[in-house]
Design a binder for these strands. Structure first.
Lengths: 190, 190
DNA sequence: CCAATTATAGACAAGTTTGTCTATATTTTT
DNA sequence: AAAAATATAGACAAACTTGTCTATAATTGG
């Protein structure tokens, strides 16, 4: 059995904290090692490079995100309520991390197209989130023939992503609150 | 009179190109100097530090942005049309720069709270853009007492910002096109 | 209990980074 | 034309980066 707090886990936990709060490029390997109390050779044993550590940071970030959002939507029954729960979870998550924004959007600004494997993680994560939310919108608008569910779904997704970025800029939850309110309105009376 | 293509101008033009395309942290002073054909001492003569160069890069970016958007909105008369023109300009600008996204959002991910003066430029730019767009929304909804113009205005602003970020991720204009369509819908029949 | 695996500590290489400083050359201005 | 301001080229410092390698210690499985 793998140790619960072995070097690998400590590295990943520390790297996650530092990459998210300081940024990927502003976080050196040595700082991670020092704060995780791990030897340098152990890092290069478990992760082949800093780039790979970044990729696994994103992979785990995606798992954690969807695990969280499914917990929140799972507590609701109606699709429209599940969609609102997505915004509630976002508000909770952004506040919990002191408005650091989205790990994926942030790292995209840092690495650009330098790391194709990171870009792959980013676009896959966002694509999955988009489909996830659009699924609720479709169900909520089912039978409503005169409404373009695809269009409304993407609009709500854009509101969601806009709320993430603006919460970071304004260091406040108003973007999420207003985005949710508009999303709810769009599902009711379009 | 200041020279049109003196060292200062060449530095700023090159730094703008490189900061935007490669990122701020991925662009070293030496690369800027080499591509601008300028001596290192000249850079530190005109700009005291890389940080200050970054601040002026943002200041100029804001001027250029608003100069551009005002050209596009100035060609329209009705407030609703002016608002649509904001989206048209965005689509044009993002495509022109090959979907590099927003200079301000990008650099925020890189420097975080490390540079308070940069953060000041960022929040001022976004705050001004928000008010600029909300002004059109207010005028377009004037007399429409049963509609909360502030709420609709912020929603459209969030759609706008979401479209910027998602266009970068998907390397496509669909986010802007859909955001504009939704914005137009919100001004017509809410 | 002993052998194999895993972790540690840290020196080291080769390359970055920003910023300073000197010395020389080119423009501008008076 | 002389004096002052501006630009150039590049050496240099001090600190940082990722990644490799060696030698020793701790832990684990059979």
């Amino acid at each position: 059995m793998t140790k619960k707090f072995g070097p690998r886990e400590r590295i990943l936990e520390t790297a996650t904290r530092l990459f998210h709060s300081q940024g990927y490029n502003n976080t050196g390997i040595n700082q991670i090692l020092a704060e995780a109390n791990v030897a340098k050779a152990s890092l290069y044993q478990h992760f082949g490079s800093k780039d790979e550590l970044g990729i696994i940071y994103l992979k785990e970030g995606r798992e954690e995100w969807f695990s969280g959002i499914e917990q929140w939507t799972g507590a609701k029954k109606a699709p429209a309520q599940k969609l609102s729960a997505c915004f509630d979870f976002l508000e909770y998550a952004l506040q919990k991390d002191d408005y650091l924004g989205c790990k994926f959007i942030n790292i995209l600004s840092e690495v650009g197209n330098n790391s194709p494997l990171m870009f792959k993680e980013i676009i896959e994560h966002k694509g999955k989130l988009r489909q996830y939310m659009k699924g609720f919108v479709e169900k909520a608008l089912e039978g409503n023939a005169d409404v373009d569910a695809d269009f409304v779904g993407d609009s709500i997704y854009l509101l969601y992503e806009g709320a993430i970025v603006e919460s970071k800029i304004y260091r406040d939850t108003w973007p999420v609150k207003k985005a949710r309110k508009m999303a709810e309105m769009l599902l009711k009376k379009v």
